[in-house]
């Protein structure tokens, strides 16, 4: 059935198409230019990203180095779950973190039902969306994004890009070197639904909380300013 359907569909599509060759099509596409992106909420890229994370109902923290990132994670999970345990993918960057310094006990692998906290190390972040970008794979199993109660995501400030067009440019650079990932996930907040009377509820299926730690040389004022702007 599918072979004859395929032939029929291709034939009908071909009859209705313009009949241009690949070079012409590519030239036409280039001539369309690029789409306008959403304006950033302020002039500073880091602050803009943090504002959008907070607007997406996430929480955020800064860490200038790996030790601070571990301490920030430890404080966050202890405060929320009274535990030092979390699940992280087999990402070499996470494996190299000084977990013992803050007493955090990570288990590396895919999250199992009943484990409340997962940690990912994002490949990118997008200021326009207030989103982090993860690739599915050994370094970040999909279950870790989706099944935890609380999803913590670290991202390097050097991997923060302004908009989606810049994100795809970076993703192409990565996939030129590595195999195409099975999944590219833009995550911009905890799981939510407004399907009952339009009322926004968090934790529909996936994480109820989403916490972003921006690593690197980011001024502490960026987060303070973001909080003051994003506050309702």
């Amino acid at each position: 059935m599918t072979d004859s359907s395929r032939a029929g569909i291709f034939s009908r599509v071909r009859q209705a198409s313009a009949g241009a060759d690949s070079a012409e099509i590519a030239a036409q596409l280039r001539s369309l230019g690029r789409a306008p992106a959403a304006a950033l909420p302020c002039a500073d890229l880091y602050t803009s990203f943090l504002i959008n994370v907070l607007k997406n109902h996430g929480t955020a923290d800064l860490a200038s180095n790996r030790s601070e990132a571990v301490t920030a994670t430890s404080k966050y999970i202890y405060q929320h779950y009274n535990t030092h345990r979390l699940v992280a993918g087999n990402d070499p960057r996470l494996a190299a973190m000084p977990w013992r310094e803050a007493g955090v006990l990570p288990r590396f692998g895919a999250l199992e039902p009943g484990e409340p906290v997962s940690l990912s190390y994002a490949r990118l972040a997008v200021a326009e969306l207030g989103a982090v970008v993860t690739f599915t794979g050994k370094a970040n199993p999909a279950a870790n994004n989706l099944l935890a109660e609380n999803h913590i995501v670290m991202v390097d400030c050097m991997d923060l890009v302004v908009d989606m067009e810049a994100a795809w440019e970076r993703i192409r650079q990565i996939t030129d070197q590595e195999q195409r990932p099975r999944g590219v996930n833009f995550i911009a907040g905890p799981s939510s639904t407004a399907d009952i009377e339009g009322k926004q509820i968090y934790g529909a299926h996936g994480p109820r909380q989403w916490h972003v730690i921006l690593l690197g040389d980011v001024p502490a004022t960026a987060l303070q300013e973001a909080r003051s702007i994003a506050a309702p």
Partner: peptide, 13 residues
């Protein structure tokens, strides 16, 4: 201004 999950899937694991 953005949905929580925007995912691109390419194929099997």
């Amino acid at each position: 201004s953005q949905t929580c999950y925007t995912s691109f899937y390419s194929g099997p694991r």
